[in-house]
Amino acid sequence: MWSYFARRVAIGIPTLWAIITVCFFMMRLTPGGPFDGEAPVPPEILANLRARFHLDDPLWRQYLDYVANLLRGDFGPSFKYRDFNVTTLIAQGFPVSLQNGFSALVIAIMIGVPLGIFAALGQNTRRDYMVSAVAMTGIVIPNFIMGHVLILVFGVWLKDSVFHLPAGGWADGALSNRVLPVFCLSLPYIAYLVRITRGGMIEAMRANYIRTARAKGLPFRLVVLRHALKSALIPVVTFLGPATAFLLTGSMVVETIFQIPGIGRYFVQGALNRDYTLVMGVTILSAALIIAMNLIVDLLYSLLDPRVRYEGKR
């Protein structure tokens, strides 16, 4: 397994390089540039700026410089936030997004998976329909609406009650400031997890070996937990891999609504501002996370199903 792990990591490196290259040239192909604002910049100043950021070098030279800097761990200066370089911006924002995303992930798993099992075991009964309806609601309500509803309820209507929660801001990560954004982040994931777990569980409970387990006289709880759960969780793990990567890299919508200094907003702001280096930085970060998560998912499969083997030796 370790050699499999090493090989997957080794494959991840050229993958990442391909993403960096494609992303670099695509950014340069988009019309406009980092210094095109509302008011046109005088040509002399523009020329100075371009020289300062080496944008007047030939493109291949810029690319080689960028990759060389990357290898030294330098993501370059931000074009927009001129007092910062991209490394600093990510170093400041990523822990915030990471904490929120991780909390949301844990909450989503702890609520979504049991609810999905609960719904599946009462398939087509009232409790199944109720859980599925709530889950469907969670999926169809976009988080920019849910976020504002949460602010309205907990930040405004309940302002004078014990349930009052701050409508936004971070306050250095005070618990009360985290509740609403984390909840808002986790809601759609709870909903997806309910549906995926429910589907996986229904499928697992139909298997012949469940009938065997029941024919042994095992109590229903054991049939579910010991015989059905592992195969029911395979689609859940498949979903959680990329979902984790997305959650940990922050949500532009949620971070904007709740004014959280994470990196989610950099995706959009960076792209709008043609802040080449910032876009590259966050893209590389999320690509690396997705590659890592997919690897972890593949390793988890072997825990859930012993038939999954790496290398073909037993």
């Binding site: 298997a207 012949n208 070996y209 009938r211 065997t212 387990a213 024919a215 010991r226 015989h227 592992k230 195969s231 859930l304 199903d305 012993p306 038939r307």
Partner: peptide, 14 residues
């Protein structure tokens, strides 16, 4: 009870 299909009648992950 003994079932027809021994390939699918045993729990694969146990």
């Amino acid at each position: 009870m003994i079932f027809q299909d021994p390939m699918t009648s045993l729990t694969p992950h146990m």
